[in-house]
């Protein structure tokens, strides 16, 4: 492969990764130097407290084309990645995690992004080394999010991803508080490619992720990105009000056709079922409105333009002359 002229940016989130930082950066820069003339590496430090900062300072003295951003507190991997992506200048930007993603696949990600013109998702081919509970919940979440957010979301996507400048600019317009690169990457809609690979842990044993935090993240992702749970509540409310309506009719039928009814039963039953009927109806309508509100307040762009072309024949009829024969 000849040394390419386009610009590649690589964003690496760091969270207490001082122990694996140096070999990782050396390997990454080795791959970049071989493949591209123009590149930059942005190390985003998610407020590490293990001396990452000092180690990076030493790396900055040794290597060119390195940039370092330090976040004020721990915001999470994906926010760190977004912070880096917001400032990159490349034609293609790649994000990867130092603890598991092999830099030697960079070429495949970049090529795939240039070919598709959109987003490239890394997909792991081997099961992750997290606990069985985490993996089970993760699988469950994948299935749910495919049903509720985007049916084409690939399974086992990792945070090894590549974006073209166009896709990146689109994602940059998402102002959501909970950043989910994988989901945004799918939602912007540009053509997508998948690169399957086998993660190579740099650290043994791997750091286990907390199940509780994973659950919280999963719930928050579904709630912010999908109105389907609310829609479910709407349906429930409508069902409940239909049942109440049926019961109300039953009470009226009893009042009309049954001679001996205990005193007060009809008024009591009618008022209760009437109230619940209205209550559930109102609830259902409210749910729909809350769903709309959610979509409006997210303030996401309505659409993204992937391409624009014009006809190359500019004058519709070259034989036409700009002459009139009558004057009105």
């Amino acid at each position: 492969m000849t040394v390419a002229s386009y610009f590649v940016s690589v964003v690496v989130p760091l969270a207490d990764d001082a122990d694996i930082l140096e070999p990782f950066v050396d390997e990454l820069l080795g791959v970049l130097r071989e493949g591209w003339q123009n590149y930059e590496v942005v190390l985003v430090d998610d407020a590490s407290s293990d001396g990452t900062r000092e180690r990076v300072a030493r790396l900055l003295e040794r290597h060119e084309c390195l940039r370092y951003l330090r976040l004020s507190k721990r915001f999470g991997t994906e926010v760190a990645m977004v912070a880096g992506l917001d400032g990159v200048i490349g034609d293609v930007a790649v994000v990867l995690q130092p603890e598991s993603d092999p830099p030697k696949l960079l070429g495949r990600f970049v090529e795939a992004a240039r070919k598709s013109g959109g987003v490239v998702f890394g997909v792991r081919t081997t099961p992750s080394e997290q606990s069985w509970l985490y993996r089970a919940l993760r699988r469950r979440f994948s299935r749910l999010s495919r049903r509720m957010i985007d049916p084409d979301l690939p399974e086992n996507v990792t945070l090894y991803m590549a974006f073209t400048r166009q896709a990146l600019n689109a994602i940059g317009q998402f102002k959501d508080k909970s950043r989910a690169l994988r989901i945004f990457g799918a939602l912007v809609g540009f053509s997508r490619e998948i690169v399957s690979y086998e993660p190579v842990p740099r650290r043994t044993p791997v750091r286990l992720k907390s199940v509780r935090q994973g659950l919280e993240l999963g719930v928050s992702l579904i709630v912010t990105n999908s109105t389907q749970p609310l829609r479910l509540v709407t349906l429930l409310g409508l069902t409940a009000s239909t049942l109440n309506l049926a019961y109300l009719m039953y009470v009226f039928a009893i009042a009309l056709f049954k001679p001996h009814v205990a005193e007060g039963w009809i008024t009591l039953s009618a008022s209760i079922s009437g109230m619940f009927l209205f209550l559930f109806l109102i609830l259902s309508v409210l749910c729909e409105y809350i769903g709309r509100l959610l979509e409006e307040t997210r303030d996401r762009p309505l659409y993204f333009v992937a391409e624009e072309r014009n006809s190359s024949v500019l004058v519709a009829d070259a034989t036409r002359r700009n002459v009139v024969h009558e004057s009105a």
Binding site: F7, N38, I89, G90
Partner: peptide, 14 residues
């Protein structure tokens, strides 16, 4: 020294 002009142009153009 190499030139970083391209980087300057790219970032400024944002």
């Amino acid at each position: 020294e190499p030139s970083y002009c391209e980087q300057m142009i790219r970032d400024s153009a944002r």
